[in-house]
Simulated scan of single mutants.
Amino acid sequence: MRILVVGATGLLGSEIVKLLAAEHDIVTASRKGSDLHVDLSDKRSIESMYTQTGTLDAIVCAAGSAKFAPLATLADEDFSFSLANKLMGQVNLVRCGAAHISQGGCFTLTSGVLAQQPMEGSAAVSIVNAGVEAFARSAALELRGKARVNVVSPGWVAETLESMGRDPSQGVPAAIVAQAYKRSLGGSASGEVIDAS
């Protein structure tokens, strides 16, 4: 398979690339350090990336940012940033990518545990993650017969917890989370939220 991995230089993205590279032709995309440059918050950047990829069998997104902060301190700009980046960025990966994916191809997006298990400070992140999941379910219906659309929902990633000074044993190593993306590519499911915790 020819697979585009967006966010390929990040923690999860690099593990996904490592896992898939032995069996597949991988094209990497990120803000820097990849085969292709892409800014998820800019639809034109996504369109430009796709003009360079040619036809793809799968598109995996392990990118997207959202603001984590107490509700009282979140400004309109924080919500706008989160919605434009992690939510609309992934929505546009599918919308723009539908013309570049082969028949029977697969999109795999990323949400997160805060969609179902919010915590203090997660208002913007939770709304974005839940939106990604709702979009994927709907897009799967629209693209039925053309392409599958799934979402991986990671829990806390061990390496992220460690970087925050928290106990990494409460999370799942990124290499294990990457296996969920491989399951999405290899299965027949569409419109599914795959729990990677």
Rank of each mutant, 00 (worst) to 15 (best):
I3D: 04
L4H: 12
L4Q: 01
L4S: 05
V5H: 01
V6A: 00
G7L: 10
G7P: 01
T9H: 05
L11T: 14
S14W: 00
E15Y: 12
A22W: 15
V27F: 06
T28P: 02
S30W: 06
K32T: 14
G33Q: 04
G33A: 09
H37L: 12
D39M: 14
L40C: 07
S41H: 08
S41W: 10
R44N: 07
I46H: 03
S48N: 11
M49Y: 09
Y50A: 00
Y50K: 12
T51M: 10
I59Y: 02
C61G: 08
A62M: 00
A62E: 01
A66M: 06
A69K: 11
L71S: 11
D76H: 15
D76L: 15
D76A: 14
F79T: 01
K86P: 10
G89H: 02
Q90R: 03
V94C: 01
Q103G: 05
T110N: 01
T110C: 06
G112V: 06
V128Q: 08
N129F: 06
G131H: 05
G131L: 12
A134K: 15
A134D: 03
S138W: 07
S138P: 07
A139V: 01
E142P: 08
W156Y: 11
W156K: 13
A158E: 13
E159L: 15
L161R: 11
S169C: 11
Q170Y: 05
G171M: 07
A175N: 11
A178D: 00
Y181M: 13
G191Y: 03
D195P: 00
S197R: 15
